[in-house]
Amino acid sequence: MTARTPSASEVIALLQVSGLHVSYGKIEAVSGVDMTVGEGKIVTVIGPNGAGKTTLLSALMGLLPARGTVRFDGEDTAGTSIKSRIDRGLALVPETRALFSTMTVENNLELGAFRFRARPARERAAAMEEMFALFPRLKERRAQLAGTLSGGERQMLALARALMGRPRLLMLDEPSLGLAPLIVRDVFRIIADLRNRGVSILLVEQNARAALKVADYAYVLELGRVAAEGPAAELAHDPRVIAAYLGINSKHQERLAI
């Protein structure tokens, strides 16, 4: 996708996770996960329900306590608050989208840039216009309440709100969940587009075929452990992955991918 193809040594690890454990009480949902997200890369985490994908993202964001080391841009994030992670450039779009449903689209976007509150308001306005260029539908709906948007529009708004904070690593939890097939295709197109703008993406998806198509590297998470990993294109041809997640009859997923 990018014109420049950096060699392996050039790639800087933006996010480096090693030995990550997350527990709910005595039940361990993520046990000993190691993963790396390179600068400007799309990395996907696929796996069945209950594999710990959402838990993993929550822990990386600081929403859940975790053991192990998480280095973001070389710095250890241990013990830091959600707010400080956001200030360093992490962003999460959760599965629920967590929009401000009784507020307008514009207000949602404006609050997305809350971390730049000390900067002049016209910078926020400019960023909002940029988002409207990226998501023209949101511009049409700018005065509408977020709760009245359709599923696809809500996902666009959640993405745009996260982008208003100018993240360096955007974590997306099931961005295609509950969306009509054509909208899913739009969402993946936007994800590919974002990478070209220099945003690194950690993508958690159930739609494995589409995710593998768009990603550079992939991890398969099963029962809280990394069961397989590798370049996405290779993993897409791995017989085990095909059997478990892609299947013979799921060609339609690919058609929807890009």
Partner: peptide
């Protein structure tokens, strides 16, 4: 607006850095 946002969706507010 940030206070309202916290009232509407606590998780969302945390995720934009409030």
């Amino acid at each position: 607006k940030a206070l309202r946002a916290t009232a509407v969706d606590r998780l969302g507010a945390q995720l934009v850095g409030i």
